[in-house]
Design a protein around this nucleic acid. Structure first.
Lengths: 130, 130
DNA sequence: GCTTGACCTTCCCATGATGGGAAGGTGTAG
DNA sequence: CTACACCTTCCCATCATGGGAAGGTCAAGC
């Protein structure tokens, strides 16, 4: 399987597969005589793991830790759980920050006439002198 | 006022003030004979505007649009409002995405023993074969 | 007047994850 | 044998921010 097919099968773009290899997240695959990367099913499985971890918001570095745990048959599930819960806390913190911004802005917008006149509490607030 | 004092007064770092100038978000300030940037109160006011817009999650580009509206005495508040509400929608979308990740992960973690044994539904899910 | 230290200048580099694209080699179907 | 799809590496761009080097400036204290 060439990189294009591995990309198709895993949902990770060829560009990103090369990048993950370059930064050491995944092992360099075999090469054909002409230098093409050659992937087998286990490689694709790993790539899918990476894609799913990324789609849950784990950074590439965290994904590396998860990958190491995944491959470690003597892992303690407690380690996985604590990594996951720490990440959940970060996600919720970020979500809360975004929602606070949205709420503030929505409130300001609700007091804005939204017509041809220039007066606008949104700009008043952002440009407040204090 | 030198750049350090403007940074202090506005809450925008000296590095970022130079950057905002370089990309054209703010006007280049006056210079002293020796080449130091010299800021007056209106410049600081603008910088505070930028800092607040950024802290509400507006991109630098959006901040530029807001700044132009802020300075345009013949603006229509409708334009400001629609910019703000579009941004609110984006913020809420991102927040929802983060919360969905958190919820998924929290659910998986709640089914994880979190002990010395290796079995873990979190890894099972991320590494699912399908 | 001179030194010292805090400030300023520009310039280059790094981040994190992703994509675009160029230049050149390979493989295969017609 | 040609055309086209694919592969390779390499460089560049994004977005907003910070770090740091090399060198110039200013003010306070001796």
């Amino acid at each position: 399987m060439n990189i294009g097919q591995a990309a198709e099968a895993s949902g990770v773009s060829a560009k990103m597969i090369r990048y993950y290899e370059q930064i050491g997240l995944i092992e360099p695959p075999a090469r054909s005589q002409s230098g093409y990367r050659v992937y087998a099913e286990p490689n694709v499985h790993t790539l899918r793991f990476v894609r799913r971890a990324r789609s849950l918001g784990f950074s590439v570095e965290e994904t590396g830790s998860l990958l190491a745990l995944w491959r470690d048959r003597s892992r303690a599930s407690a380690d996985v759980k604590s990594l996951a819960l720490k990440h959940v806390a970060e996600l919720e913190e970020k979500a809360a920050a975004l929602q606070a911004m949205a709420a503030t802005l929505r409130h300001l917008a609700s007091n804005c006439h939204g017509d041809q006149r220039p007066d606008c509490p949104i700009l008043d607030k952002i440009g407040a002198r204090n």
